[in-house]
Simulated scan of single mutants.
Amino acid sequence: MMHYSRIVAPAALILSLAACQRHAAAPKLPPQPVRVVTLQAQPVQITTQLPGRTEAFEIAQVRPQVSGVIQKRLFQEGTDVQAGQQLYQIDPGIYQAAVDTAQGQLLHAQANEVTARAKLNRYGPLLKAHAVSQQEYDDALAAERGAQGDIQAAKGQLERAMVDLGYTHMNAPITGRIGRSILTVGALVTASQTNNVAIVTRLDPIYVDVNLPATELLRFKRELAQGRLTRVGDNAASITIALEDGTTYEHSGRMEFSEVNVDETTATVVVRAVMPNPERLLLPGMYVRAQLAEGIDPAALLVPQEGVLRNSHGDPQVWVVDADNKVSLRPVVVGQAIGTNWLVTAGLKSGERVVVQGIQKIHAGDTVTPTDAAATDAAVPAKAG
């Protein structure tokens, strides 16, 4: 038994010494390399983007007012037409006949009125001379008044017939661009039909409708009153729009902040902008982004979007490197996106360093090796006043 103990003790001592040597040989990890952006306060043009849809300024459906067969189509589809311009010709035959009949009835009534008036004029002196009775004079007066009534009725029939004849000329109700013709020459149309024959749309100017949160509407109204928004009229601000392909529309318009009803389910209001459209580039139903310039922030701080994290509650936070190259996680308040950056409104100050690369491998309190990284889209240059 004593012999076995003498063998085990030296072996355990050898294993313990080997383990100590391995632990002492483990190398110390170097500081984690990260790339940082040093924040610099700078003037930035603040612009709010609002999604919206274009709507026609005016739209009119062309429908027949009288029944008949279409004889002619007098326009080219997809072209501009003027208010009052003739578009279709309906067969006017029966309506011209009605006008002729009404004219004949008017002439007959006028002739009867001449006879009745002459008789009344003769009976006047005879009544004074007691050559005719009062009843005969009253009958003559009634006949003359009745003849005048027949004239008025005949004039009304003639005017109605002429209106119907005029309706055989189907004219453009507004100035705008006309689309395709639903019916062709030879088709029968009726005065009571619900289907339109064509549609005329006024494209210049054109509306842009955007859904705006009620809180944003209040903010814009305050900024408009303070002069931060460019004013183009009472309760209106200047805007530009970006098209679906990303290009900026060359004309600027005005946005009206006159909406008074808030949607209770979404807490938003539909705000309408009016845009000039001389080239007819904008068409109703297009998706656009309205851009509203809110002025210049003289000391804005921009942080690249890849440097801003979100916690489990969705709150933004960033890794900040201090003077000893130690990192800490700091909550911040961000505003809108400007290019590829977030506008930070609270939580950071000029001169601080924010980690933008290597975030996944660092922990609070770690010492890092920072290197400067060029911020992409560092700022939107302020417009010259």
Rank of each mutant, 00 (worst) to 15 (best):
D150E: 15
Q82K: 15
L283S: 15
V368T: 15
V189K: 08
A102V: 04
W319F: 08
V8Q: 11
F75I: 03
D322F: 07
A161Y: 01
S5Y: 02
D150T: 04
Q71V: 06
Y88M: 11
P92H: 03
Q336P: 01
I46G: 04
F57Q: 06
Q305T: 09
I70A: 06
G52S: 11
T201G: 07
Q135H: 09
Q85P: 02
A242K: 02
A172F: 08
A11C: 12
T340W: 04
E250M: 13
A375Q: 11
E58M: 14
H23N: 07
D91I: 03
I338M: 06
G335V: 03
V197L: 12
D139S: 13
T265M: 14
A225V: 02
H251I: 07
N261Q: 09
Y123L: 12
K349E: 11
Q96Y: 10
R177A: 03
T38R: 04
N196D: 06
A242F: 01
V344M: 03
V327C: 08
S350H: 07
I174Q: 14
F57S: 05
T38P: 01
A102F: 03
E352N: 02
R280L: 10
A111R: 15
E144T: 03
R231F: 04
A111E: 14
V189F: 13
Q148C: 06
T215I: 03
S133K: 08
A56E: 03
T47P: 01
A102Y: 02
